[in-house]
Amino acid sequence: MRRGLGLTQLTLDIAEQGSVPLEDRPVERPRSGHWHRVRSGLVWAVAGLIAAYAVSVVATNPAMRWDSIGKFLTAPIILQGLVTTLLITFLSAVIGLVGGLVIALMRMSANPLIKTIAVGYLGLFRAVPLLVQILIWYNLGTFFPELGFGIPFTDIGLYGDTNVLLSPVVACLIAIGLNQAAYMGEIIRGGLLSVQPGQVEAAIALGMTRAKAFRRVIAPQAAKSIIPPLGNDMINLLKATSLVSVVGVGDLMTRAQGIYASNYQVIPLLIVASIWYLALTIIFTFIQGLLERRFAAGVAR
């Protein structure tokens, strides 16, 4: 009974629409309505207002000291810190890349022992916070007063004072570099796994040795998928170097802290540091873009 009523209702609806076939009836375009325009205007207005307010609060704050931001932005001591920051970033990136490649290859090894070592390394260095790792390397002298090479369980070998060998900068480089190697290892492994096995086989079938196939085919193709996460990682690395300020290595952050400790202009100096980190990040992003284009060959466009 009820079904009959529904059918009747449906038939009536169709009748009311007149005789225009469905394909000829006008439609309302999505997002073209009057209300949509009003709504998006409103969103822009509110966002603009909030932004303007935020800028004015910061800019007109008497503690802001625009003059000292300008003065310290290019102060020699800050620029020295900038150079140290870049140096630590660059050197630990090199350690990280080389170490990461080794870890990635070990992790993909068929040998279970080698694979387990790589997995253990990844687990350890990704689990312990970088700050803790920096402090461990920095304070290693309190645990092993002497370091060197020699035959285990004998006195034969070359040894030196740990605190001399592991200067604060070297301790930081090792700490950040080894930590980077763990993250880089996973990024590189992801890139290597993204290369189609057939590409490798084609290279081998052509008569390339494994090493040559790696250099000529696997590496360039892996690079394409490694670069975006690598850029991400480099930016992280750049910012992570600010952690070395805990051991006073003289990077950008250490210098900024040193200055505000004496003149109490904390926020202005943190802004000075932020501006430099922002500038470096923009440069890194630009380089990443260049590299991506360089290795994009062969992607469908």
């Binding site: 189609q196 057939g198 052509l206 062969g298």
Partner: peptide
């Protein structure tokens, strides 16, 4: 093994031209 394979041509079902190289570069690679 590599030297031997260079004397035997293989064309397989799944075309495995090197995707990051042009056709000409693919042919001169070997």
């Amino acid at each position: 093994a590599a030297a031997f394979r260079s004397r035997v041509g293989l064309v397989s079902q799944h075309v495995n031209l090197f995707s990051h190289r042009t056709v000409l570069e693919n042919v001169i690679e070997g």
